[in-house]
Amino acid sequence: MSKMLLSIHVLAAILTIGPITVAASIFPRYARAAGAVGEIADDGEERGERAASIAGLLHRICRGYAIAGLAVPVFGVATGARMGILTDAWLLVSTVLTAIAAGVLVLMLLPLQATLLELTAAGAGADEKRTRPAAARLSGLTGIFNLLWTVVVVLMIFRPGATTGG
């Protein structure tokens, strides 16, 4: 049963956190490009409109997968309980880092993405003085989010001080 829970936990992490990290990482680029004024793509569509559409899709991916990502800690706790390791230091640190990453996503990344979408939805000539710094801040926050998940993955693999092997 432990192996089944662990498998579901790992699959949930890969299938939900992976898309969030990728979509969140490329969102700022498209949000900045959405403010492009008057640039016409090869197919005649305005580049800013296309970029705004892509940014909107990336935001929906982040939002949707954040909800689905709730399965990761649920199955993680179930796995830890089944294996009797819920009080191991590496797991406690991983749990805290996961909570911080979730907080960064829900309280900072998603709202800032929504703000950037609103700024660019204002149409051509979106206030670049507000869009560029917000996109830069979003890039930095996304880096922090991704770094937190990287540390969690490393802790899950190396499990320092764990008595269950590894």
Rank of each mutant, 00 (worst) to 15 (best):
L70G: 14
R32P: 08
A24H: 01
A36F: 07
A55T: 03
A81T: 13
A31Q: 07
G125M: 08
S25L: 01
A51H: 04
L117K: 11
A126H: 03
V96I: 14
I17E: 01
M83H: 12
G35P: 02
A33I: 08
R29I: 12
R132S: 15
F75N: 06
W90S: 03
F27Y: 06
A31G: 03
I100K: 00
E39S: 08
A126N: 02
A24L: 03
V10F: 14
A34T: 14
I67Q: 10
T131L: 13
L117M: 13
T115A: 14
I85S: 00
P19S: 12
L91I: 02
L110C: 15
A33N: 13
D43I: 15
A13V: 01
G123H: 05
L91E: 00
L70F: 07
S94I: 00
L107G: 01
V96H: 07
A89I: 11
R29A: 10
A99T: 07
V77W: 04
G18S: 08
Y65N: 04
A81W: 15
G69V: 04
L112Q: 04
E118K: 15
I26V: 15
A13C: 01
D42M: 14
G38H: 11
A99W: 10
Y30Q: 10
P28S: 15
A36G: 08
G84F: 13
R82Y: 09
V74C: 13
A24K: 03
A23M: 11
E45Q: 14
T21W: 05
Q113E: 14
L109Y: 09
G125V: 07
I85C: 10
G35R: 04
E49K: 15
A51C: 08
A12K: 05
A89L: 05
I67V: 09
P19H: 07
D43N: 11
P19T: 12
L86Y: 11
V104R: 07
A66F: 05
H9D: 04
A34F: 14
G103C: 11
T95I: 10
A23G: 13
P73M: 11
R82P: 03
A52S: 07
V93R: 06
V37W: 11
D42W: 15
V106T: 01
V74F: 15
T87F: 08
V72Q: 06
L119D: 02
S2N: 04
L112N: 05
T120D: 07
S2C: 06
A33Q: 06
I26F: 13
I17P: 01
A12Y: 00
I26H: 12
T95W: 08
L107S: 02
Y30C: 13
A121M: 06
E118C: 13
E49P: 08
M83P: 07
L97I: 09
A68I: 06
S25G: 07
I14H: 11
H59M: 10
A12C: 02
A124Q: 02
L109P: 09
T120S: 07
M4E: 04
I20S: 01
T79L: 13
A34D: 04
S25Q: 03
G18K: 05
H59N: 01
A33E: 02
A89P: 05
A78D: 15
L5G: 09
E39M: 14
G69N: 06
L11R: 05
L107T: 11
A135S: 04
L97T: 04
T98R: 00
A89V: 10
I40K: 14
